[in-house]
Simulated scan of single mutants.
Amino acid sequence: MTQQYVDLQQQLTELRSEAAAYTRLFERAQSMKDMITIQQALTKVNAEMQNLTQQAHQLRQTVALASVDVTLTNLRAAGRGTPSPVVQALEQSMGVLGSSALALLDVVAWLVP
């Protein structure tokens, strides 16, 4: 959708430039026939701009109403199986380190008073 919106904005920029050029031509037109021809071309460009503006508005509305569904799963429950031996050893080491820290705090708590 982003690319579609960017394309619409680019087309609108080009059409605005074209409309400005037609307006400058209209101001310098010498005959009624030239004025009518330029006015018809300018009307066509304005209709295209209005159409593209409406499309851009619809895209903005669609994005504003969009929703995203997210599903979080546990890697082990998702079928990854058991962790590698390195991960298991690391988990066990962290557990032992945590237990040792708690034991050290207990000792300090008994020695401080």
Rank of each mutant, 00 (worst) to 15 (best):
T53F: 04
P113N: 09
N51E: 09
L111C: 05
W110F: 07
Q92C: 08
S99C: 06
A56Q: 01
L75D: 04
V86K: 12
K33D: 15
N51G: 06
S84E: 10
L12R: 07
A101H: 13
A109S: 12
R28E: 05
V68R: 02
V45R: 04
L12W: 01
L65C: 02
S93H: 08
R24D: 10
V70G: 03
M49E: 07
S67P: 03
S99D: 15
Q4T: 04
E27M: 09
T13G: 10
Q4I: 06
S93P: 00
L8Y: 05
Q3W: 12
R80T: 09
V87T: 07
E91H: 09
Q9G: 01
A89R: 13
S99T: 12
L42R: 11
S100K: 07
Q39N: 10
A66Q: 10
N51I: 04
V63Y: 11
T73F: 08
R80G: 10
G81T: 08
A109T: 10
L105F: 10
N74S: 12
V87G: 04
E18F: 13
S84Y: 05
T82R: 11
S84C: 04
L59N: 01
K33G: 14
N46Y: 02
Q3E: 14
T23H: 02
Q54A: 09
V63E: 10
V63M: 06
Q39T: 07
V108K: 09
Y5E: 12
Q10A: 15
Q4L: 06
Q3T: 14
T82Y: 07
D106H: 15
V108P: 03
Q4W: 00
P83K: 03
M49D: 01
R28I: 01
P113K: 09
T2D: 06
R80F: 09
Q11E: 14
V6T: 14
E91A: 14
R24A: 10
K33A: 15
K33E: 15
Q40E: 13
A21I: 14
Q88T: 09
S84P: 00
V86P: 00
Q11C: 08
E27H: 06
S67Q: 12
A21S: 15
L105H: 08
S99E: 15
V70L: 10
P83H: 04
L104C: 03
T23M: 03
L75R: 11
V107P: 06
V96A: 15
D7A: 11
S67V: 13
H57G: 05
V70H: 07
Q92E: 15
Y5Q: 12
R28P: 00
A78S: 06
